[in-house]
Simulated scan of single mutants.
Amino acid sequence: MPYQEPEPADLKKYIREVPDFPKEGILFYDISTLIRNPEAWQIATGRLARIVAKFNPDILAGIESRGFLTAAPLAMRLGCGFTMLRKPGKLPGKTVSLKYGLEYGHDELHIQEDAIKPGQRVVVLDDLLATGGTLGASVSLLRKVGAEVVGASVVIELAFLKGRSKIDVPVTSLINYEE
């Protein structure tokens, strides 16, 4: 019997807010409290699957590391492939990289050189959209290896940081924080 979503759930109540993490002044939105609750996690992945399926992806790309938590089960659920966007030194074989700036410094993402076939339709996933630096860099890296990036999806969006404005593909989010 296929899973039936119960009455609409407010997924925000499953997100733990951790003040001063990873450094003072930052309010961290922790999805571990969502994913450890089986009913809430089923609802969240079901909603994400319906959203992402509309993009008709060939492959889902998860951003290290919490993006793996959504992209891998969704890829299996939707019958498409999954690839990882990782920090330097984490992927075997030849990789393609992209360095990018963040509000607090610089970072770098890698993808295996042969992870995407040119023209494949890709949706990139992460747990959180804040200022848009990492998600924007992910879209650029995927294009660098020939992907047709058709969308992005996140569990949480901090809309007040306006990160969506830096992403040039449609972005969907399950949970929004406006302030």
Rank of each mutant, 00 (worst) to 15 (best):
M1R: 11
Q4E: 15
Q4K: 14
E5F: 13
P8E: 15
A9G: 00
D10E: 13
D10Q: 10
D10M: 08
D10T: 08
L11P: 03
K12D: 03
R16M: 03
V18S: 07
D20H: 07
D20P: 00
F21E: 11
K23M: 14
E24Q: 13
L27F: 06
F28W: 11
F28M: 02
I31D: 13
I31M: 11
S32V: 02
I35F: 15
R36N: 15
N37T: 01
N37C: 04
P38A: 05
E39S: 07
E39H: 02
A44V: 03
T45P: 00
R47M: 05
L48R: 02
A49P: 11
I51R: 10
I51E: 14
I51Q: 14
V52P: 10
A53M: 04
A53F: 02
A53V: 05
K54R: 15
N56A: 14
N56W: 01
D58P: 13
D58F: 12
I59V: 15
L60G: 08
A61V: 05
G62T: 03
E64Y: 02
E64T: 01
R66P: 04
G67P: 03
F68L: 10
T70W: 14
A72E: 09
P73V: 12
P73H: 10
L74D: 06
L74N: 05
R77P: 01
C80R: 03
C80S: 03
C80N: 04
F82Q: 01
R86L: 08
R86K: 10
K87V: 09
K87S: 09
P88I: 03
P92G: 12
K94L: 12
V96D: 08
S97V: 03
L98N: 02
K99W: 01
Y100N: 09
G101W: 05
G101C: 03
Y104D: 09
Y104L: 06
G105V: 10
H106L: 09
H110T: 07
E113N: 04
E113W: 04
K117E: 13
P118Y: 07
P118I: 02
G119T: 03
R121V: 01
V122A: 14
V123W: 11
V124Q: 06
L125P: 01
L128Y: 08
L129Q: 06
L129C: 09
A130K: 05
T131P: 10
G132F: 13
G133T: 02
G133M: 01
G133S: 11
L135F: 07
L135H: 09
S138I: 00
V139F: 13
S140P: 00
L141Q: 06
L142N: 02
V145E: 08
G146A: 07
A147Y: 11
V149L: 12
V149T: 09
A152T: 14
A152Y: 14
V154R: 13
I156V: 15
I156A: 08
E157H: 10
L158W: 11
L158G: 11
A159M: 03
F160T: 02
L161H: 02
L161G: 07
K162E: 15
S165N: 13
K166W: 09
K166C: 07
K166Y: 14
D168G: 04
P170Q: 00
V171P: 12
L174K: 04
I175T: 05
I175N: 04
N176M: 07
E178L: 13
E178Q: 14
E178V: 00
